[in-house]
Design a protein around this nucleic acid. Structure first.
Lengths: 248, 248
DNA sequence: CGTCTTCCTTGATCCGGATCAAATGAAAGG
DNA sequence: CCTTTCATTTGATCCGGATCAAGGAAGACG
């Protein structure tokens, strides 16, 4: 669930601006103050599970730093990642007590949380917050549907390229549609996590990364550090049409 | 986007109860009346396109009868269905003018519509409606994520079985989790449309349907009319765990 | 009636990605 | 330094589903 550029500049509200922008870009001072009182922080270590599927989830919140993933697992162990949460992304389901998937910290992670009940009560009395959450949920739904196209119809090479363009876009300012020229960034996920995201095996991920490197689409100086010499060249590999593809 | 059982009994409001339950299960009389004034109907023929991807979409609404689909298409023609709308499902994206996918009537279809602008204005002043829409969007998101698991990790046979359990559940009362015994229903989609839904080819869909028939999981008396002699036997084929799988 | 057309089934073959297996490299710890 | 561990790469082989191709069944319509 990613953050749209707020319509209004975020107000200064202590050390947790990210969270306020995420859930309350258009709130007035009172609402900000009420949110401020309710918040608390939780830290997680890399690899630590935050919520298990089918468990109660008694909080909502935003990622302050680090990366979390949402995954679904079948009885026999097949896994599919269904969401990746980067800083400023929102976690949680107002009105829903039970988590339908595992939430896991893949790096060290700090979240800014609100207990679910009082948050919901506040939501009921401040229409802006409900509307903001609806917007964010619609964004997530768009992203999920784009991902369904990727999972159902793209080749392994296109999947990898699509994934990298998403990271590249997150890197160069939130949601900039067409970054230009050379971009470097770290891969936040292991090959296996990428495979779970893309509906592939880790071997196929590794092979396709090597192939893209061989073809000059990217450089891999450190296995987890990538340089894309030419964003447009990478974008051609995604199978999306030229004008951006992942746009909402 | 499917309809939760309303918390309150729907009020009698003319010939369009479905729509009111969908967007306004908890509205009071005034709000119902305002919705009533705004509504209008649109009919579409089987196969007719309702909205093209990237077009403006100036209405929201509910399906009254018939079936519509949401699909994304790649430049080279690869298609992935990303949603299937049955009666009472909601269509449209409050706050979003541009449709990110094609909306198509796959059968003759009647929709109950509201112009987007006034609907949004009403939403801003009636918190119940925004909250109801948030709930519905969260349901859709859950369904999309379940679908991502299907697309990314299930075998062709599991995909077909999963699809049929969804239809079977819709058939036996909305969202009943485990229908019992024998169920018969019509297949609303062609083999090709099923393939687009499941990330397969139409040949594979046909072959797997034949295989399930050969194995006694289902009977196909008329190609588009299915009988499942034992729901649990079908559910075993989905790969989901025994307690329902598709539950939210 | 015969001929389209559309939808579906079935067969033969191919290929992309999965699976099985081994080796490399880097970091951590004794 | 050596050993262990974990992430990654690469090779060899296999197989599920795609692709190519042909034929059948049911309307629609002259």
């Amino acid at each position: 669930m990613s953050l749209h550029a707020p319509k209004l500049a975020p107000r200064d509200c202590g050390d947790c601006q990210i969270r306020h922008r995420a859930v309350c870009a258009r709130c007035d001072g009172d609402e900000l103050a009420r949110l401020e009182e309710m918040k608390y922080y939780r830290s997680f270590q890399a690899g630590q599970n935050i919520v298990w599927s089918a468990d109660r989830m008694d909080f909502v919140g935003s990622v302050v730093s680090g990366i979390a993933t949402l995954t679904q697992t079948m009885e026999d162990g097949r896994r599919q990642m269904v969401g990746m949460l980067l800083p400023s992304d929102f976690v949680g389901r107002p009105g829903r007590a039970i988590a339908p998937y595992d939430v896991t910290a893949v790096t060290d992670l700090v979240m800014c949380c609100f207990r679910r009940k009082p948050f919901e009560e506040m939501m009921a009395t401040t229409p802006h917050v409900a509307q903001r959450l609806l917007e964010m949920t619609l964004d997530e739904l768009d992203a999920a549907r784009e991902w369904m196209l990727l999972l159902g119809r793209k080749t392994a090479r296109e999947k990898i390229a699509s994934f990298l363009t998403i990271l590249a876009r997150r890197e160069t300012g939130l949601k900039a549609k067409t970054p230009k020229g050379q971009i470097s960034f770290d891969l936040p996920l292991t090959r296996e996590e990428m495979a779970d995201y893309l509906g592939l095996t880790l071997e196929t991920v590794s092979r396709q990364m090597s192939a893209l490197k061989r073809d000059g689409v990217l450089e891999l100086e450190e296995k987890r550090r990538i340089t894309v010499p030419n964003y447009d060249r990478l974008a051609e590999e995604t199978g999306d049409d030229a004008d951006g593809g992942m746009l909402a």
